[in-house]
Design a protein around this nucleic acid. Structure first.
Length: 477
DNA sequence: ATGTGC
């Protein structure tokens, strides 16, 4: 509910200092009155709690897809001064570098047929679902390289082409990775899973570009109307999950050790510049690199299938961009006219750097970075561009997706997976999933409409629409 | 999200 929040504009709301005790800064949420009806009190409280943590700068921020999460809300951004601020695993989440990438093909919708066959082939090619393993179990030394080098490791091993790397945020590799802080247990979980899709909201979709809203940006990003594309949404699997679990323990101890007062145990944190904070950051970066290698390997599998079955040249399937939804990064931002080094936590939020940012590909410098916002199963996904407004208002951030409305358990009670699969088929969307249970949990109705969420970030100027993508085939874990 | 709930 929006009650108790101060209205700044039709799409921006303030969570005043004092909403919970000890807030150092206010909160800001980008949200319409309509979507505000589903705003959870718990999520607002979590956003306010983040504002109590040491070193927070400017605002604790909520995107229109905000919902309740572990400690920090999902759809939240918190930036902390590197000198006196904190880093928190709860500000990143369990699925470190959960992210999404978009790849185009030269195929056009009108000339394309055989979606069922393609999805069935991909479903048997890309390992999918909880506990599934990749065709290859990597050695300890290979895993070490994966965690250090990320997407570039995969390309070097033949799972892609050199241009792929520069089309990833961070070039698909956080150089701060320190693998010595990744436990044996995390490595054991990670070794058989690189090149697997995972479960839940993770997916592999075949889509087409249904609408182009910004011709200039679409041209720069390399996407045309009616083009067949594929989108991959997944993360760091069991490795990132284990890294989060392991470091929550050490960070909880550090919270006590450094005398940091937190309003919720799930906000455990340590100074950015502390051994415990640096250890978590290094292990998180290693997990992020693993996730980039993972998405790169899946990209390769899909390209090989399309090359073989549709006669498309592998090199004609270009990576538009790869963004991360769950990460903490050290970035320089201008705050009240002066440059500051910040530890920016984006949890269920996407970087949306604007024109001229040195971090984005040079050939896109005049446009802004590509921003990819996936919809829920069977609904529109969007390609947008980053903006200067985002740099000024949200530390260069925007939303990450539709945002869940109902819990997995309630979704299972109210929806039949088989019925949803048939409904989608009637609408021309062919779904393969590891179980009907997953389809019920991921029913489009239990998510906010992606179009409404994207409308708000567009109206707020946090990222501007470039293209709308519609699914024709979906693989769900 | 996750070898799905301590």
């Amino acid at each position: 509910m929006l009650e108790g929040l101060n209205k700044i504009s039709d799409i921006e709301w303030e969570v005043r200092k004092g909403y919970v005790d000890d807030m150092a800064v206010p909160g800001r949420i980008f949200l319409s009155e309509g979507l505000g009806e589903n705003l959870e009190d718990g999520a607002v409280k979590q956003l306010a709690n983040v504002a109590t943590l040491p070193g927070i700068v400017k605002y604790s921020l909520g995107m229109p897809d905000i919902h309740w999460g572990y400690g920090f809300p999902i759809g939240g951004v918190g930036a902390f001064d590197v000198e006196n601020g904190i880093i928190s695993p709860g500000g990143v989440g369990f699925d470190i570098n959960c992210g999404v990438r978009l790849i185009t093909t030269p195929l056009k919708k009108d000339e394309f047929s055989g979606i069922k066959r393609l999805i069935n082939t991909l479903f048997s090619t890309v390992p999918t679902g909880v506990g599934n393993v990749a065709p290859k179990k990597f050695s300890d030394s290979e895993l070490e390289d994966i965690m250090r080098e990320g997407a570039s490791w995969a390309v070097k091993e033949g799972y892609g082409m050199p241009d792929d790397v520069k089309s990833c945020e961070e070039s698909g590799m956080m150089k701060e990775a320190s693998t010595e802080h990744v436990s044996t247990k995390a490595r054991q979980r990670g070794r058989p899973q690189c090149g697997t899709l995972g479960s839940g909201n993770h997916f592999l979709e075949v889509q087409y570009a249904a609408e182009i809203m910004d011709d200039e940006a679409a041209k720069a990003f390399g996407i045309e109307k009616d083009q067949i594309c594929f989108m991959i949404h997944c993360g760091s699997r069991g490795l990132g999950h284990q890294v989060c679990t392991d470091h929550l323990g050490t960070i909880e101890n550090a919270t006590k050790k450094y005398g940091i007062k937190i309003p919720d145990r799930q906000l455990a944190c340590a100074p950015v510049k502390s051994p415990e904070g640096e250890a978590y950051f290094g292990a998180m970066a290693a997990s992020a690199n693993y996730a980039w290698a993972n998405r790169q390997m899946i990209t390769h599998m899909v390209r090989e299938v399309i090359e073989r079955d549709f006669g498309v040249d592998y090199n004609e399937m270009k990576l538009v961009y790869d963004v991360t939804h769950n990460v903490a990064k050290i970035e320089t931002h201008v705050v009240d006219g002066k440059k500051m080094e910040l530890c920016v936590h984006r949890k269920g939020a996407t970087r949306a750097f604007g024109p001229g940012s040195p971090e984005i590909p040079k050939d896109l410098s005049a446009i802004g970075q590509p921003v990819i916002i996936p919809g829920s199963m069977g609904t529109s996904s969007y390609l947008l561009k980053g903006t200067q407004t985002a740099m000024e208002k949200t530390f260069g951030s925007t939303c990450h997706g539709a945002g869940r409305l109902a819990s997995r358990s309630s979704a299972k009670k109210s929806h039949s997976g088989a019925d949803i699969r048939q409904d989608l088929l009637d609408r021309g969307i062919f779904v393969r999933a590891t179980s009907n249970k997953v389809i019920a949990e991921e029913a489009p109705e239990v998510y906010k409409p992606s179009s409404e969420v994207v409308d708000i970030v567009h109206r707020a100027g946090l990222s501007m629409k470039v293209a709308r993508l519609e699914p024709i085939g979906v693989i769900k874990g």
